[in-house]
């Protein structure tokens, strides 16, 4: 059984089925891709998984436990971390403070439950400051650590969101277009980081438009169109799929 599962996940906005009957399996230790054209329902699926939206139907389970009735913050405490397509950084604070807030909030609630070991520290339990420094460094944000996030370019702000999400030591990480706004070398670096995190045992669900990146890091890809899963498989399989080609490029007229 996969670490994170959705079964029959659906949501209706007015008369419009934005997400319809979506079954996803996100395995620990792997990067799973979720791709599809604009408006296909990818971000909505993220919102349903982490509890920002309530589904009109279907279930979400984490490690076999139903989490569909829990609030957003309770799901986060069980280990679901995420980033946002439309940035949700704490723009009036510095990069370091953004990550620190995440770590502090985690420290606040982790007292009541067991805490996962940090993914990036090779063994040992670093102090709060050490952990924050580690995250800032690993995302290549060292040079801008004391810059206000509101004045950073999009790409770097996205990296801040990733570092912040990692600060709560999640078991599942939902990444919503993390590479948009990054240059080639930054994207490359991010890809390596994702693989590394997955190797350390994290389950990553990646929404991304940079298809080469998806092909490179994902072991399994789901393709969403009109709120439905229209294909799934290995990156190569999906790439060859004609339905997917049509969904992306439209049928030739």
């Amino acid at each position: 059984m996969a670490l994170l599962e959705t079964r029959g996940l659906s949501i209706r906005f007015g008369g419009h089925l934005a997400v319809s009957d979506v079954d996803l399996d996100v395995e620990a230790g792997l990067v799973t891709g979720l791709i599809g054209p604009n408006g296909a329902g990818k971000t909505t699926t993220f919102n349903l998984i982490c509890g920002v939206l309530s589904p009109t139907g279907g279930r979400v389970s984490l490690d076999g436990r139903q989490i569909g009735s829990l609030g957003t913050h309770e799901r986060a405490r069980l280990g679901i971390g995420r980033t946002f397509q439309r940035l949700e950084v704490f723009s009036s604070m510095t990069v370091r403070e953004n990550v620190l807030v995440g770590a502090e909030i985690r420290q606040g609630w982790a007292r009541f439950g067991h805490s996962e070991p940090p993914l990036l520290a090779a063994g040992g339990d670093p102090s709060l400051d050490e952990e924050v420094d580690l995250l800032v460094d690993r995302l290549g944000l060292g040079p801008v650590a004391d810059t206000r996030v509101g004045s950073l370019p999009t790409g770097q702000a996205r990296l801040v969101e990733i570092a912040r999400a990692l600060a709560i030591r999640p078991r599942v990480l939902l990444l919503d277009e993390p590479a948009s706004g990054l240059d080639d070398s930054e994207t490359h670096h991010l890809g390596d980081l994702m693989v590394q995190l997955a190797t350390a045992g994290l389950a990553i669900l990646l929404v991304e438009h940079d298809v080469p990146l998806v092909m490179k890091v994902c072991s399994h890809v789901f393709v969403l169109d009109f709120g439905q899963v229209i294909a799934s498989g290995t990156p190569a399989e999906v790439q060859q799929n004609e339905t997917v080609q049509a969904a992306y490029l439209g049928s030739a007229s």
């Binding site: 054209p37 604009n38 490029l249 439209g250 049928s251």
Partner: peptide
């Protein structure tokens, strides 16, 4: 502006 490139190229 179009996402479905083939549709509009015609």
């Amino acid at each position: 502006i179009e996402q479905f490139a083939r549709t509009v190229l015609g």
